[in-house]
Design a protein around this nucleic acid. Sequence first.
DNA 1: GACGTTATTATGTCTATACATAATGATCCG
DNA 2: CGGATCATTATGTATAGACATAATAACGTC
Lengths: 228, 228
Amino acid sequence: MIAGWEDVRAEVLRRIRARLWAPGALIPGEEALAAEFGVARATVNRALRDLAEAGLLERRRKAGTRVALLPVRRATLEIPVIRQEVEARGQSHSFRLLAMRMAVPPLPVAGQLGWAPDAEKLYLETLHLADGKPYAHETRWLDPAHLPDPRPDFAAVSVNEWLVTHVAFATGDIAFAAEAADARSAEVLGVAQGAALFVTERTTFTTETAITFVRLIHAPGYRMVTMV
Amino acid sequence: MIAGWEDVRAEVLRRIRARLWAPGALIPGEEALAAEFGVARATVNRALRDLAEAGLLERRRKAGTRVALLPVRRATLEIPVIRQEVEARGQSHSFRLLAMRMAVPPLPVAGQLGWAPDAEKLYLETLHLADGKPYAHETRWLDPAHLPDPRPDFAAVSVNEWLVTHVAFATGDIAFAAEAADARSAEVLGVAQGAALFVTERTTFTTETAITFVRLIHAPGYRMVTMV
DNA sequence: GACGTTATTATGTCTATACATAATGATCCG
DNA sequence: CGGATCATTATGTATAGACATAATAACGTC
């Protein structure tokens, strides 16, 4: 018995998996499915829209709905605040502010963020600890124009967290890569130079100009996991 | 003038960003907002639901809707078939099947996949090339029970792609990590042993038992990028 | 005051109907 | 035949009204 939109989604998914509807094939229209399942068209629409968002169906007005030929898997990554990430592992989070000074960012950084190439910005370096052991090494460039006067006490509240709760809800992009540990990160994280480290880079914008650029260099063994 | 649900979402987002509604604060109910904006409640619902999915709002029945205190950023990663990924960079994709044999998988692999610890499975090793240069080194364990008889010609169609189009639409999990190149990957990718490489691990299930487990070891310089 | 029960309430969803929009395919014309 | 125009059609979205569900708050009992 098909009642709600989740039932509809399940049934459509079943038919796709069972290859009753082959990849690339056109499936019946919403009206037809609504009639068959005995629900309203809006309910079918909700279900199909959901599957389309997941990348399993491709929908185009007038053209109809077809099963994706080469389904692009879409995984949603949750990117929590570091403190939450550490605490979720049952460890206690702490951090040490290693450096905080005004400096001119390297040209590639200034360029990517749309900053004037010779303007001084705030440079922050933080070491995050899980149960007292190095967890991640954070280096950050921050436009002080977005900070209140007087500045927040970044030795008490991590920059990370202050930003999230105060200039949150901005757009940006994230990149992940593997890099060999440079001298500084190796020293701070207590690993051999050249060790393979997982690096997260985030750029955050509000409107036109960037607020901040962070590199998060994770300690060895870090894995980012997600379900599909 | 607010007309559609996207307008409602934009206005709500504006108020959150402008801190008219502070983090943690309860926002007006759907009915109230619908009246204020001059739209139906269903329209407000659609907008708020979308923002909740994005992690900016937290909604609970009866309790109402509140602005997320520590918004968990949700990034959606698109995980395309390797061929598409390479071609999207304007390069040509090819691959070489380096190995294909029946073997007993290592215990940790068998364990994670719910396979009997001593059962033979199909082991496949593939090198993916972009414009003829090493792009990624793929090692895969595959349960041959899910293959048709006779087996597909994996020298002609990449395993990756055959699976996506034939046993697609399954669930699974994905993990990302940085690892030092072992002897085999170093040789195949043409890099120094110990080099920092980006590794993707995917486990794919249909029902209870796993179909396949892949490790994709990317050539140096690989970056995974996404927008928020 | 502690505890189980009930009323209340905000969100979740469904329905039926209507109109909007985009893309296709047919048609008409030069 | 090429190209512009228009009718058609499937999805996209809006609406009002209704009921479902979950969780809180209020209440009554002991």
